[in-house]
Amino acid sequence: MKKKILLLGYGNPNREDDGVAWHVLKGVAAGLGLPVPESPDAPIGKFEDRIELLFVLQLVPEISEIISQFDEVCFIDAHTGEINAGVRATEIGPKFQNSPFTHHLTPQSCLELANSIYHRTPRGFLVSIRGFSFQFEESLSAETDRLSKSAVDLILKWIRSGKFVETVIS
C-alpha cells in the first residue's frame, strides 16, 4: 500500500521570502498535474488520493491531529542565513522545542505533539529554502525564487521515486 504523504508549507505570503513555501507548493501542484491554487487561502487538491498539499500561516498545536493521519510529513519553510545552504532537505524527528516568548511552534514540536497526543509519529522531513528579504511584498526575491524551483524539483523527485534523500543545495 502506498504511503500517505502530507506536504505542509507554512509562512507569511505577505512577507516576501517568508512565504516561499506557498510558492513551492504551487510548483509541486503544477508538477503533479493538480490545479494550481490562486491564493494561499484556497484549498489545494490531493494527488492519487494519498498526497495532500496544505498551506498554513503558522504551525499551531491542533495541526498535530492532521499530521498524525499521515505516514510521512514534509514541512516546507524559509530559513535565514544562519543555515548555510540555499535549499536544505533533512529528516527530522519528534522533539519538543521551546519558544519562550511566543506561540511559535517548530515542526519537531508538532511531530512530538502528534506522537504524545495521538500516538502516531509519521516520518518527518523538513525542506527549507533560504530567504534573503522579508519586506512587505507578495513576490519572492530573485534569489529565493530561483531556489524555490530547486526545492520543487527535489520534492517531486522524492514523490516519484518514493525515496527521500537528505540534500543540501548551495
Partner: peptide, 22 residues
C-alpha cells in the same frame, strides 16, 4: 521569561523562519 509571558505578548507573528527561539 514568565513575567513577559504572563502578558501573552504578540511580539511578531508576521514572519518566522526555521529554528527554535532560544
Amino acid at each position: 521569561e514568565a513575567a513577559i509571558r504572563a502578558h501573552d505578548p504578540c511580539l511578531s507573528c508576521s514572519t518566522h523562519a526555521v529554528g527554535e527561539m532560544p
